[in-house]
Amino acid sequence: MFRSNLAAVLLGGASAFCLPLAAEAAGPSGLVAHRAIYDLELKDATDRSGIAGMYGRMVYEFTGSDCTGFTTNFRFVTQIDTGDATRMSDQQTTTFEDIAKRTFKFETKSFTDDALDKDVRGAAADGAKGVKVNLTQPSAKEIDLAESRFPTEHMLDIIQNAKLGKTFFEAHVFDGSDDGDRALVATTVVGKAETPKLDDADADKAGAFSKTSFWPVTVAYFNEKSHGDATPVYRMSFKLYENGITRDLTMDYGDFVLTGKLAKLEMLDAKACK
């Protein structure tokens, strides 16, 4: 699941177990091409956040295959009420990840009220001692990071650990978020498989998967140099299906918390690897 750097945008301006639908829809990884739309609402906010209300929509589109690589298109749009004014935040991210070659490309544009705030672009790949990042925007820069997982790899790690019954693991993850110049330490907690309850808010939106089991997952992201009882930069909880689809999101940015309920799920065509 892709992290959003929404917190930096807002606070700076304020002061998916089931089988795939069809066998050919997934490759060896088991991940399926899909488009998921989530309705976002503010669950909680501190006085320090300066946020009186917030709502929006997130669109997460995942396509590709194990042999050609995976493309993610992600858009995160929210309207924020500060009490004195309202503004629109719009983050648009595209990534491409080749698991076999261990390469990752990313581009993120962030807007406030249609004005461009940030444009980050670059690529990452295995280096001699870890991950080498080549940024091209906002300025050309080469960065050497610790050995890290890319987003789709990390999702596959979560699914594999869930299948093995391993409830906790930690990894460095690089996804190009924020300024695209650092990896974060992700601590992941995976619960036992569950089936939807009668009051499960967005289970009915999961279509063919509405009554299928899932794993409850929480991932907390920390700065690499954090020690002891450090506060995570960002925490996300969700219900995860074996094919990579997620729903019932909770996104905790520290000063405010958003929920994301699955509003629509569409399975997309995917070509089988030859």
Rank of each mutant, 00 (worst) to 15 (best):
T218L: 11
D144V: 06
T246I: 14
G180V: 13
K211C: 01
T212Y: 04
D113Y: 04
H34M: 02
L31Y: 03
T95Q: 02
L268E: 02
G122Q: 11
F150Y: 15
F70K: 01
D157A: 14
G130L: 12
T167S: 15
L31W: 02
V189D: 00
K205E: 12
S89R: 14
L135P: 03
P20A: 03
T231W: 10
A8N: 14
V131M: 09
R57W: 00
F256W: 06
M155S: 06
A85H: 12
D248A: 13
D90K: 09
P151L: 05
V32S: 04
S177M: 11
A16S: 08
F96T: 05
R121C: 03
P216E: 09
P216L: 08
A123Y: 07
F74S: 06
T86N: 12
D144L: 08
K264E: 14
R182M: 13
A140C: 00
K197C: 08
K261P: 00
E107F: 00
L240Y: 11
L19A: 12
A220M: 09
P232N: 07
A201Q: 15
T63P: 05
A26D: 00
Y234D: 00
T78M: 11
A206G: 04
D179K: 12
Y60L: 07
A140G: 01
R102I: 02
Q160D: 12
D179Q: 14
A203W: 07
L258V: 03
A16F: 05
G254F: 04
V133N: 08
D119E: 11
K105G: 04
R247M: 07
V219P: 05
D252N: 13
L145Y: 07
D269W: 00
D252T: 02
R3T: 09
L156C: 05
F256L: 05
T78I: 09
R102P: 00
L258N: 02
F222Q: 01
R87G: 15
S29V: 00
D119G: 02
T188Y: 12
S15E: 11
E170H: 07
G191I: 12
I143C: 05
H172W: 04
G122C: 08
K166V: 15
K109G: 10
T93N: 01
M58D: 04
Q160V: 03
A263Y: 12
Q160G: 11
F150S: 10
R121Y: 00
V131R: 04
L240Q: 13
S226P: 01
T72C: 08
D181V: 01
K192S: 08
M155L: 15
T103P: 09
F76E: 08
K271D: 10
V32T: 11
G56A: 03
